[in-house]
Simulated scan of single mutants.
Amino acid sequence: MFKNMIFVLEIAFLALLPFLFRIKYRLELSCLILFVFLALRFDYGNDYINYSKLFYQLISETPVDEIIFDTQMEKGFLWLNILFIPFGFFALVACLTGFNIYSIYFLIKKYVEEKYHWYALLIYIFTFQLMLIHASALRQTLAFNFEIWAIYWIFRRKILWSYIFFLLAIQVHRSAVILLLLPLLYNKTVMTLIVRFYPIILAGTFVVGLYIVPLLSKYVAKISPRYAFYFEQIEAGQVSSGLGLLGMMIILGMLYWLLKYVSEMELRFLLILNLLGFCVTLLAIQMLILSRFMFYFEPFAIVTYPLFLSRIKNRLVRIGFLGVTSFIISYSFYNFFQSEVWIDKFGRYQTIFSEKALDYREGIMISEE
């Protein structure tokens, strides 16, 4: 089973080398290493081949306008594919990867203390919902990248620019419509109210997730067969370990406590987004389709976890937090590679220079035995 993880372990080791040798531009070099491995990937992730088939369908004899108006996929992503037709699908993947890695680099560089850059990078690599899923979910990853830059403009009170990026996000994934609320949240009074009533919000979310969401799941599954997969696997989406749920609640409590030590409005906002992500997680446990919204909240752990280590001075508490977060991330990472849903497409890394990729470029897929 560990051989299936070898790619991630190798990339983590290589990305940490600049930090071990204390190279001057270590974060930049580490992100470059991530970019090279991820930009050159082939058929890595459950959605890779589906996206490639869409791309090659656009350059087939089928009229482009028919595909654009007939498909349910967001038009913005379709037009992005069309723009890359002269360069090829591999170039599209490389550019999307570059934008994603640069956005993650920006987030770490701007909001994480330098001495914790290594920790933020490890969170990104080993939290399976981040690097691994980002390598597969091209549309929603791009939407999240737009969110990062929209928040950048919110912080600078350039609301028009922020909404431009939010609209771009919606054009590549409809779930990004939830992001339109973010400018309203970046208000001192609103943020104070969220912090004050967060325990009530969390408790309400738990009740809704426990009693209302299961009923809603059954109803939506009946009227929307397209999303049946998400409702057939509700049990698989539940937290499989009481210890895992306990760990998650401990992290939540510690991050809520951290708010007392964070006065900067920008950092408090990112921390609040991360806390709201825990509410979405509680709902997604019962209704997997809601996990799409977690995409826009969970990644800010890259900022908030290192922030805890930098602001909390009690050494034992910091060690405890590091231990709990490491356990939860490692436990989820291990389970990810145990799952039959993911193991087939994430269990083996190959590049665009592999024999299979070269054959695929010519339109021939070598069948797996």
Rank of each mutant, 00 (worst) to 15 (best):
I366R: 14
I11N: 11
S339E: 10
G88F: 03
R361Y: 08
V324S: 07
Q171F: 08
I82Y: 13
E61P: 08
E74F: 05
E66M: 15
S291A: 15
A39R: 01
Y48M: 06
A284I: 01
F353H: 03
L184W: 12
N4W: 02
G204A: 14
G253K: 05
Q57M: 13
L259P: 00
L138A: 01
G244A: 12
S367A: 13
Q233Y: 08
Y230E: 02
G277K: 06
L78P: 01
I85P: 01
F84M: 15
R268H: 00
V341T: 14
Y186F: 09
L246A: 15
L270Y: 13
I364Y: 12
F229A: 10
E114Y: 07
F166M: 10
M73K: 13
T205A: 10
E266P: 03
Q129K: 14
A120L: 01
F321R: 02
T304P: 02
H117E: 15
L132V: 12
F99I: 15
D70V: 13
T189V: 06
M254D: 00
W257Y: 15
E362Q: 14
V341M: 12
M365Q: 13
Q238H: 11
M287A: 14
F37A: 05
V177W: 04
V8C: 06
G237P: 07
E74I: 07
G323K: 02
I125H: 11
L276Q: 02
L290A: 07
F146C: 12
Y334W: 09
F106T: 02
E266A: 08
S332P: 00
I319W: 14
I178Q: 04
L216A: 15
K188T: 06
P299C: 10
A221W: 04
V112S: 06
K109D: 09
Q57S: 13
Q129F: 11
F35C: 05
I302N: 04
F2V: 11
A150D: 11
P306R: 03
L259D: 03
H173A: 01
T189A: 02
F87P: 03
L282R: 09
F353P: 01
L210H: 09
I82E: 09
F2S: 00
Q129G: 14
L20N: 09
S367H: 12
K3E: 14
E114H: 09
M248E: 08
F126Y: 14
A150R: 06
R41V: 05
D43K: 00
I364K: 15
R292K: 12
T127G: 00
I364E: 10
A15R: 11
I328M: 14
Q140M: 09
L307W: 00
F353I: 05
L275D: 04
F87V: 09
L29H: 06
P63V: 09
Q140A: 08
E74P: 07
Y349K: 02
K260R: 15
P214A: 11
I133M: 15
L282Y: 10
P199Q: 09
S326M: 05
L38A: 12
Y44G: 03
F84G: 06
V324E: 07
W149H: 04
L243Y: 11
V207S: 10
